[in-house]
Design a protein around this nucleic acid. Structure first.
Lengths: 132, 132
DNA sequence: CACTAGGGTTAGGGTTCT
DNA sequence: TAGAACCCTAACCCTAGT
């Protein structure tokens, strides 16, 4: 129907990460409209960006030995609701850079506007976005 | 962020409805300042009240997506989603009481009071606001 | 200049597909 | 079963109009 399912490419992920570095997480629309990585994300909506970031964060999350919901397998198609205490990650919720292939280099570009954000975590813009 | 997201409680909704009954829709500031239900809404701004009323109105009506996939997979996933018994409630400018729409899985609904505030002739105040 | 109306955006739960 | 991609929409933001 509408979406045959479009898998995210490495370039798109890189663009998203660069966008989050520049604007901070939560500024999906701004990231998408950015003249630099925006073009890489023309086929993605702001919601898509948000969803992708969520998925990336989840997989980058190092959860494992904690507590699993301990699902009670009552049978097939059983829906177990898990209203656990969500995550209380006090850590800087930043880039889950966990790429097996580092195919980035050079340091082109530069800024365009660096405003906002900042405050708590001392973070710098070291992410180099090579384009797509 | 300070407020991850503050879901509206049933008490707050009741307070809002009572406020609209008393002052009429659009008088958000007055509702918020009311000595009776105002205290229930201390953590809500006048804009919040307006937004909430809008959402309530939308859900009370069948408005929303004019398109419903209604996928009939029939496969292993026997997920039958309940079709909304869209009630063609009167488009009156008043109370969007959503009783028939209690399909949400409320994790812990403490209150057990089942007071029926059904009479909605649309002329008298619903003094059934029990506070919060 | 405060408030409201309305459009736009984000956050989070849920669903579908792989 | 798990994870990725997408959908739905309540909650929240921005801004023009009054």
């Amino acid at each position: 129907m509408g979406a045959p399912k479009q898998k995210w490419t490495a370039e798109e992920e890189a663009a998203l990460r660069a966008g989050v570095e520049k604007y901070g997480p939560g500024k999906w629309r701004a990231i998408q409209k950015d003249s630099k990585f925006g073009p890489c994300l023309t086929s993605r909506s702001n919601v898509d960006l948000k969803d992708k970031w969520r998925n990336m964060s989840v997989s980058a999350n190092g959860l494992g030995s904690a507590r699993k919901p301990l699902a009670i397998t009552g049978g097939p198609g059983m829906m177990t609701l898990m209203e656990d205490a969500v995550s209380v990650l006090p850590l800087a919720v930043l880039p889950p850079i966990d790429d097996a292939q580092a195919l980035k280099r050079e340091s082109a570009d530069t800024s365009g506007d660096r405003k906002s954000l900042g405050s708590r975590s001392g973070m710098q813009y070291l992410q180099t976005f090579g384009g797509c």
